[in-house]
Write a protein that binds this DNA or RNA. Structure first.
Length: 579
RNA sequence: UGGGGUGUCGCCAAGUUGGUAAGGCAUCAGAUUUUGAUUCUGACAUGCGUUGGUUCGAGUCCAGCCACCCCAGCCA
């Protein structure tokens, strides 16, 4: 794991930090900062979640508070242990440590149920027999108010009995629901007697078959926050309209009972002040040329359009990890994109900048020839072969690597041009170029096969140019190479953006899969890397000079059959101006 | 056409109580360079969705428009 960025960057301010500083100054939450990261375990985490993770954990770190890791597992049908394990691994990999044990909303099911009983007894919740279709019809529309359920005035005794029977498993899924009694004519649809419990006769991955009723998100989330004594409940913009319900539920439950439950769970000191949590929303992350919805990512996986959740082209954390992105680069990215309430689409170039910044500073250099072209040095014999010592990094002292230099070697096919374009600084007939870390050579003869394809170059070497510039002339270019003797065969996977369109979510484009880039993966199997890479370990990152940053694939690479993933290319002002 | 939001440089994004538009990414130009990389230097919004108003002075206050996003799951 590459996590060594010691570059200091001041933390930019944003509205949430302002709010917290204000709260701290006013003593609103008793000077505490308690956040939480509450994913539903129904898929893998993606870079959008990283924004939330960095926010919640980062805030806790910065203000000496704590951040809980909580699985919001109220919908057993879509969730699984596999996702729980993957999510935990991703958060740890990002470098964050949650406060205490991992929490589960399902661990609060009993308390949640008891609070529901409290609402029922208080006449603030009722059991409704409307079918899902009827409920939708009764709810009204965006412009029309809803109508009261015929069960709205049922006595609390009867509601109590029915709700208890719901949990006993006496009814079928959908036969009854528990609803908060608020206002069917509210302009905010979330307040039109929202359903807070539904019947599901299924097995839950954490609680087994004990529960027959499951709480809805709106009901469970605010109470879970209160039970964990969360101060700042941060979520994305689409939950803005849910905030009145979040507050309604907490304010219609007895604070003492919330406090006591919090106390019993060990989340509150005996004599401490108890303050209810407050929700604040921020804009979710969008990145161009990417889709960021779990539903769509899941679809790509299930349709086999990518290799899995951790396919290196995916914006998932496990995909980015496999691609070679470092935790530090992702955290840095989440910092520089800022935090606001306006929906925006961040340029993928920002993410690329972050990983280049990290890897430029922290990765060792090596040479890799992607498309080998044989070069024979006509005035150099194998008896003259020598070992060269090259620094592993141009600026930081992290040791050196050895490369043998002999009569035959390989350069990249793209570094030779029979008829070079103006400004070309690489090898061409009759011209000189420097072999990186070695000598200046001159192309004397080009050997082609019967089809005219260049198969070998015969070059002469200037023996006076090792470690010094030739006299009386300037050699414009430097190219990388690999010795024939000792070079390692490697497979290199080159990734391009998964989508051709900058906004695959654009509804005018139809299905997002229409924008899929058919050439997003290119596999090169005949690459040659320098001998020093023999000791490369899984996930280790390198800069292959003049090519880009690559990492050892954590699953497919073997010592004798190396596999590298290209994380990102180097910035390139040459091909950019020549296309 | 109900409710809730958002509109500052190509992309993000700062702009405390109104005082004369931070920063990053990208881009362009130049210097250094045995990576056409890195690094360094310089350029890059008389303008803050729009129209009016208040004011000596408005991105910041007021009013009206316009555009876009979210909400009618017993999903989260």
């Amino acid at each position: 794991m590459n996590d060594s960025s010691n570059t200091d960057h001041a933390l930019p301010s944003h509205f949430i930090r302002h709010m917290i500083e204000h709260d701290l100054a006013s003593g609103k939450h008793g000077g505490r900062v308690q956040t939480r990261f509450p994913p539903e375990p129904n898929g893998f985490l993606h870079i959008g979640h990283a924004k939330s993770i960095c926010l919640n954990f980062g805030l806790a770190e910065q203000y000496h508070g704590a951040c809980n890791m909580r699985f919001d597992d109220t919908n057993p049908e879509k969730e699984s242990q596999e996702f729980i394990d993957a999510i935990k691994a991703d958060v740890k990999w990002l470098g964050f440590k949650w406060h205490g044990e991992v929490r589960y909303t399902s661990a609060y099911f009993q308390q949640l149920f008891d609070f529901a009983l409290q609402l029922v007894r208080a006449g603030k919740a009722y059991v409704c027999s409307l079918t899902p279709e009827q409920a939708r019809e009764y709810r009204g529309s965006l412009t029309e108010p809803g109508r009261n359920s015929p069960d709205r005035e049922r006595s609390s005794e009867e509601n109590l009995e029915l709700f208890l029977r719901m949990q006993k498993g006496e009814f079928a899924d959908g036969q009854y629901s528990l609803r908060a009694k608020i206002d069917m004519s509210s302009p905010n649809i979330n307040m039109r007697d929202p359903i807070i419990y539904r019947i599901r006769n299924v097995v839950h991955h954490q609680t087994g078959d004990y529960w027959k009723v499951y709480p809805m998100y709106d009901y469970a989330h605010c109470i879970s926050d209160a039970l964990e004594h969360v101060t700042h409940s941060l979520c994305t913009l689409e939950f803005e309209d849910h905030r009145p319900l979040y507050d309604w539920l907490l304010h219609n439950l007895s604070v003492d009972s919330l406090r006591n439950a919090c106390l019993e769970l060990g989340n509150l000191q005996e004599d401490a002040r108890y303050v209810l949590p407050e929700q604040t929303e921020f804009a979710r992350l969008n990145i161009n040329y990417n889709v960021m919805s779990k539903r769509k990512l899941k679809e790509l996986v299930e349709l086999g359009l990518v290799g899995g959740w951790d396919d290196p082209r995916m914006p998932t954390l496990s995909g980015l990890r496999r691609r070679g992105f470092t935790p530090a680069s992702i955290r840095r990215f989440c910092e520089i994109i800022g935090m606001s309430r306006s929906e925006s689409i961040v340029d993928i170039g920002m993410l690329e900048h972050c990983i280049r910044e990290d890897l430029d500073e922290n990765s060792a250099r090596a040479m890799c020839v992607l498309r080998p072209l044989k070069v024979t040095l006509i005035n150099f014999t194998d008896e003259q072969a020598q070992t060269l010592h090259l620094p592993r990094h141009p600026k930081k002292d992290i040791g050196e690597r050895q490369i043998n230099f002999g009569r035959t070697l390989y350069i990249d096919q793209t570094d030779f041009e029979q008829t070079p374009p103006p400004g070309y600084k690489r090898l061409s007939p009759g011209e000189e170029v420097r072999l990186r870390g070695a000598y200046v050579i001159k192309c004397e003869e080009v050997i082609c096969d019967s089809e005219g394809k260049v198969v070998e170059l015969l070059c002469s070497l200037d023996p006076s140019t090792l470690g010094q510039n030739p006299q009386g002339r300037k050699v414009k270019g430097v190219i990388h190479w690999v010795p024939a003797e000792g070079a390692l065969r490697a497979e290199v996977r080159i990734y391009d953006r998964l989508f051709n369109n900058s906004n695959p979510d654009d509804k005018l484009l139809g299905d997002f899969k229409n924008s899929l880039n058919a050439d997003s993966l290119q596999i090169l199997t005949d690459c040659l890397v320098e001998p020093s890479l023999e000791s490369a370990v899984a996930e280790e990152s390198f800069q292959f000079e003049r090519e880009g940053y690559f990492c050892v694939d954590r699953y497919d690479s073997r010592p004798n059959a190396l596999v590298f993933n290209r994380t990102v290319s180097l910035r390139d002002s040459w091909t950019k101006t020549n296309t």
